[in-house]
Structures are given as C-alpha cells and as structure tokens.
Amino acid sequence: MSSMKLQDMTSPLECLARFILQKKWYRADKTIRHNAFMPNQNGEVSVYRTKSLTCQQINEIGRLHVAEIQNKKLLGRAEIVVSSILKQDLKIEADPEPHPRHANIIGWPTDKSKRKMIAIELAAEAQLHLINNP
C-alpha cells in the first residue's frame, strides 16, 4: 500500500496511535514529551491506524505487536490526528508489518533542530491515554 493510497483512505481527522513503552515519553501532568515523536535512525516514527477500533482493541495491538515483542510493558499511547502530521509536511506511509494497521511517519527534515521543533509541536497536539497497569 503506497503512502498516497493510505492518505486517500484516511480522513484528516483520523487518529493514529504511537504506543508508549517508557515513562520518559510523558510528563507527570499527563502531557507528552517531544521525544515520543522523534524519528528513529531510519527517519521513521512508527504508528498504528486506530479507525473503528475500541480502546481495548487498540491497546491489544500495542501489547501484542509492539510491547511484548520488545519484552516491555505497554504504558499507553499518544493519539494524534492525521491533519497534525500533514500540516508539518510529513507523510504517512503504510507499512503492514508487523500489523496491517501499522504505518510510519516519514519525510522528516535532515536538520535535527527542525525535527525537534516538529516533534515538540506534534507532542503538544497529541493526547495521552495511559493504561492502568496492575
């Protein structure tokens, strides 16, 4: 599935989930830090499309396809609307491994300070949903 196809399929108001595996990604006041949205060495931020899924189903994807693979506990997710990403001139590219709903945010600038700036803005617009782990 190409990035164009995915964008055609998504509404600008559709939500994407960035699964959170560590506390460094959010603050005590339940806001999200920019490092949750900093791209990895491949210039990608891994996200999942959540359209038509319940919270439970979304978390199940995170648990099975993100956290458990890494031997980590799923702490929650940062949800961000597609329009916030497109507004930054970034793209969303489908990457159906390890899950059909998986995608990457790509198209990041090469200048790190610009990437940081964008990540700050994305984090400010994202909503944190924590899981009540026992």
């Binding site: 595996l21 560590q22 460094k24 990604w25 990895n40 060495q41 491949n42 891994s46 993100v66 956290a67 890494q70 980590k72």
Partner: peptide, 8 residues
Amino acid sequence: NWDGYGAM
C-alpha cells in the same frame, strides 16, 4: 533499543 523502537 532502550525505547523499544531501536534507539541508539
């Protein structure tokens, strides 16, 4: 991989 997403 301390962040679970391949971090250095």
